[in-house]
Design a protein around this nucleic acid. Structure first.
Lengths: 120, 120
DNA sequence: ACGCTCTACTTAGTATTACTAATTAGCAAC
DNA sequence: GTTGCTAATTAGTAATACTAAGTAGAGCGT
């Protein structure tokens, strides 16, 4: 891992990111992994199977996503398509609200520090 | 814990928050805890000793903060005043840069989801 | 037929982070 | 001398994510 901070901040928000991706369109684990590892999300580091699949199981067990099994496609194994449940949509809305509050709070500490640093 | 999301997002960024607080002014564990539990940081939940002190030890072991022991004050035990080392300042600058990148990335996923939701 | 590659999912074991909860200890006020 | 406040320490646990390996189907080239 190139950037050791990646791991740190990533904890916790991946769950929200997966809910966003699933909410945008019905999708499956492998596609999520390739999307995360594609352009735009490099700052998250490279999501691995051992990270993504357990989160999907947790989300399903919590009743936030539902799963539809599609038979094996052109090439490759059978896919598990996930979509948000009503509870999942509600939870995601709450999560997003909280994410906003949270970043505002953390930014506050950062700005306090930087304001002080500028005075030197 | 009232808000179960608190715990999730909090993982990882507390380290940066402590560095910001220590960088702003020399301070000690108990003061950090009371500051975090005071106004403005309620969204972080209530930081407990078992969370803050181990982070301070980690930061010290990593050479990011240095420690000065002050004799017992008017009332209370002796304090351990922490301040940033040069390495700590550098690391904090890097952490802040990364924090910006990180939130932009996560916000991107959130906005993608919300853009799609509005179209419905 | 065989191995190779790609898609796709699963899982065991580990590290890190934070929380719970209890303990120690000095000093002051009553 | 007991209570209350400041201040730090620590043992044990839960949650999150990572490492690394394995399973399995389908298509392709030889």
């Amino acid at each position: 891992m190139e950037n050791r901070y990646v791991q740190q901040f990533k904890k916790g928000s991946l769950e929200m990111i997966l809910l966003c991706l699933i909410g945008k369109k019905e999708t499956y684990g492998y596609e999520i992994i390739t999307e995360l590892n594609g352009s735009g999300a490099a700052v998250l580091g490279y999501a691995k199977e051992g990270t993504v699949y357990p989160i999907l199981y947790r989300l399903q067990e919590a009743g936030l996503v539902q799963c539809r099994i599609a038979p094996a496609a052109a090439n490759g194994g059978s896919k598990k398509y996930y979509s948000l449940t009503e509870k999942g949509e509600e939870t995601l809305r709450e999560l997003i609200l909280f994410w906003r509050e949270y970043t505002v709070c953390v930014d506050g500490f950062v700005e306090d520090y930087q304001r002080m640093e500028e005075k030197l």
